[in-house]
């Protein structure tokens, strides 16, 4: 870990401004991802801006009938919130499927969105990795790629986004609110928040330098049966091989997003039109452009079968 300077920000705008001013600055929230990466010198910020004192830890109703979740609301609190459990069950379930109780007590809403990939080559600084060191190559291609992306990947990177929460957020059409270094605010629909790896896998979101996430907003509840099904090798405390966030209405219409298959939560709105026709049809559209590796081709069948089980559960 490199030595770094540290400050406690007092207002969101000040935090954003400081991040712009100081080269190589990073925000730190729960620290459950950032600190691990700093210890391994995968992240090497020269300055840390602690945002924990920013009072962004409330869940409030919006005028539109939705919920505004402060960037610092802990995953545990978000999952347990009665409004979330009642109206956005898929989110609560996704959160509880992630990490462990101890980690969720620390992990924040914004930090969770911005957690970085679990690609093992990203974690080993002796290996080439375009995400960690742009231009160095991608050791996962042709290497151990069982966990990796099957769709939307590139020649430069085949990593997945590991968050469970983000998959539910995508299904719920959440919006990310930020404050810019100049104090201006911006709202980014989650559909536009994450980027595919392309040639620049180190740039993962559409946030601009210095942008601070202040909240994530959920639109008015959409009802339906809300299911989050996470498939993994062990029963708990593991990242998804494939996960399905689904909201299914009585008439069989609804929404689905997949985790564990791409560089971002994977949702193709056009595929949802196929929901009344069953999992096979939906999966065919969702994963139409899939290009799996030999080691992760099973994820295609797994995604389809899991989707099938989820749709059956929604009906039953």
């Amino acid at each position: 870990m490199r030595s770094f300077t540290y400050e406690r920000a007092r207002t969101p705008a000040e935090a954003a401004a400081s991040a712009m001013r100081k080269p190589d600055a990073k925000f730190i929230a729960g620290g459950t991802n950032l600190l691990d990466l700093m210890k391994l010198e995968i992240e090497t910020p020269a300055h840390l801006i602690d945002v924990n004192g920013l009072a962004l830890d409330k869940i409030e109703p919006t005028q539109e009938g939705g919920l505004r979740i402060g960037a610092l609301v802990r995953n545990t609190d978000l999952a347990a919130d009665t409004r979330v459990r009642r109206d956005y069950g898929v989110l609560s379930r996704a959160l509880l499927a992630g990490a462990s109780g101890q980690l969720r007590n620390m992990a924040t809403t914004a930090g969770n969105l911005l957690q970085r990939t679990r690609c093992p080559y990203f974690y080993d600084t002796n290996q080439s990795c375009n995400k960690r060191k742009p231009g160095s190559g991608c050791a996962a291609i042709g290497g151990f790629s069982r966990q990796h992306a099957v769709v939307g990947a590139s020649e430069a990177c085949i990593a997945t986004h590991p968050s469970d929460m983000a998959v539910a957020m995508r299904a719920l059409d959440a919006t990310v609110e930020t404050v810019r270094p100049d104090g201006a605010t911006r709202t980014i629909p989650i559909a536009e928040f994450y980027r595919l790896p392309g040639d620049t896998p180190h740039i993962e979101t559409t946030l601009m330098p210095g942008d601070l996430i202040t909240a994530v907003t959920l639109p008015k509840p959409v009802g339906g049966k809300q299911i989050y099904r996470k498939v993994r090798d062990r029963a708990s405390y593991a990242f998804a091989l494939v996960s399905v966030a689904a909201i299914v209405q009585r008439d069989g219409t609804g929404r689905v997003a997949l985790g564990g298959v791409a560089h971002k939560p994977w949702r193709v709105e056009a595929a949802e039109a196929q929901m009344p026709n069953g999992a096979k049809a939906v999966a065919a559209r969702l994963l139409a452009d899939a290009r799996p590796t030999r080691e992760n081709a099973f994820k295609l069948a797994l995604a389809e079968r899991t989707l099938g089980a989820v749709l059956a559960e929604a009906k039953g």
Binding site: P120, Y121, Y123, D124, F144, A235, S236, A238, F239
Partner: peptide
């Protein structure tokens, strides 16, 4: 390659 306890899975209570 999977040289940590996130990558090398052993059983958990569940």
């Amino acid at each position: 390659v999977n040289h940590d306890l996130a990558g090398y899975e052993v059983p958990v209570h569940a």
